[in-house]
């Protein structure tokens, strides 16, 4: 069994991203089954069933208010922080239901990192921002922290820009750098999954390009789920794409197929810019 899995992975890695066959061979990392979600009396998500592949970029697209961000927040239980949220259905990560009573959302969030639309570094130094998660885990040794900080910043392609000013306030960085700092901060706790909620919508094209480049590199190690309003971005970075509309999952499939040959009329209309 293990040998088979390994073989599948090797196959997957050698294949061109976005190829139809790739995803069939990739393991599903996240499996969502019949998910319904309400804010108070208002239902926001209807019967979502989807499975997202491991070590791939999955993109959620759809018009504003379609529930894609809400759905993203279901995956690391960020919605728990909002009063009046209720949901039914199952969300399996690595085969385990994260809404099971035995799962601690705090531990879960360590494995499922999140990047926000607006970069939100803490009002601390660059170093302390990256070390934050490890400090929460009780790591104190300077040498270990130094190593983790450097590794995370290198992974987030920020090390060269900030290595000489690690002790300066993070809020002195540019918008794009701040966003990469947030990615480094998320990577420092060594998650399996990265959720990105419109990570480049507040950035200029150059900074956006850097983030996208980063995603290509990161997906070799991490399962990435990204919410985006930018069709081109979804087309460029993702392997699979889900189209949400009015709280329902309308269409899900391999990105190239969604963008070139959607099966649903709504998907086509949205992608071609007829509404949304």
């Amino acid at each position: 069994m293990e040998i088979v899995t390994e073989l599948q992975q090797t196959l997957a890695e050698t294949m061109v991203p976005g190829n139809l066959d790739t995803d069939r061979h990739s393991q599903p990392k996240i499996v969502v089954d019949e998910l319904n979600l309400w804010y108070g009396e208002t239902q926001a998500l209807y019967d979502i069933t989807i499975s997202l592949p491991e070590r791939r970029v999955s993109a959620f697209i759809g018009p504003s208010g379609c529930g894609k961000s809400t759905f993203l927040r279901v995956l690391n239980r960020m919605n728990d922080l909002i009063d009046d949220v209720r949901l039914t259905g199952r969300v399996l990560i690595d085969g385990k239901n994260i809404y099971d009573g035995s799962v601690d959302p705090v531990t879960l969030r360590r494995h499922v990192g999140m990047i926000f639309q607006k970069s939100n570094p803490f009002p601390k130094s660059i170093y302390e921002n990256v070390a934050y998660g490890q400090r929460l885990l009780g790591k104190r040794k300077k040498a270990e922290l130094d190593e983790i900080v450097e590794r995370s910043l290198v992974q987030a392609a920020l090390w060269d820009e900030v290595k000489d000013r690690l002790n300066e306030p993070a809020l002195g960085l540019s918008g794009g750098q701040m966003q990469r700092l947030c990615i480094a901060r998320a990577l420092a706790v060594e998650p399996d999954i990265l959720l990105m909620d419109e990570p480049s919508s507040a950035l200029d094209p150059i900074a956006t390009a850097k983030i996208e480049e980063l995603m290509f590199e990161l997906k070799e190690k991490y399962t990435i789920v990204i919410v985006t309003h930018n069709m081109q971005q979804a087309a460029r970075v993702s392997d699979v794409t889900a189209f949400f509309y009015l709280g329902r999952l309308i269409e899900f499939g391999e990105t190239r197929k969604i963008f070139t040959n959607p099966t649903k009329k709504q998907t086509e209309d949205y992608i071609t810019g007829r509404f949304g």
Partner: peptide, 9 residues
Amino acid sequence: EGSYALGAT
């Protein structure tokens, strides 16, 4: 939220 997302209580 940034703090919660890193596994902070």
